[in-house]
Nucleic acid binder design. Structure first.
Length: 112
DNA sequence: ACGATGACGGCTC
DNA sequence: TGAGCCGCCATCG
């Protein structure tokens, strides 16, 4: 795939921020997008995560949508892996959603 | 070039 | 953080 230079740069930024998500915490695509100055392109963040497969250091399972819904679970090797990893970190998941999402939420705009 | 698609978000009810 | 609708924007057929 040939991506535009800016696009690749965007990818790198997304991975860089995602890699900083603390253990047992989660964030949203929009939060990352906002931190990168592309708040309107939250969708692109999700799309960027699609290529996170080549970046093992990126804990994609800690990135969910704004309501804590594990929308990206279908992109994992095993659909239950995302939930398993989060629960292993102490994050309670119920019906594909993060319980007390606000409590586990980690906003790069505020934290960084 | 056009329309559909999507790991989304914000507003409204 | 329920459900529904619309706006964003890069990518793809």
């Amino acid at each position: 795939m040939n991506y535009a230079p800016e696009t690749e740069n965007f990818f790198q930024k997304v991975y860089a921020v995602a890699a900083l998500i603390p253990y047992g915490r989660v964030t949203s695509y929009g939060a990352i997008a906002k931190y990168l100055g592309a708040a309107r392109s939250s969708r692109m963040v999700g799309w960027a995560m699609n290529g996170a497969s080549n970046h093992p250091e990126v804990p994609a399972h800690r990135v969910v949508n704004r309501v804590g819904l594990l929308t990206g679970k279908h992109h994992f090797p095993q659909t239950n892996l995302m939930q398993q990893l989060l629960e292993n970190e102490g994050v309670i998941i119920k019906d594909d959603k993060v319980v007390d999402f606000k409590k586990h939420f980690w906003d790069p705009v505020i934290e960084l």
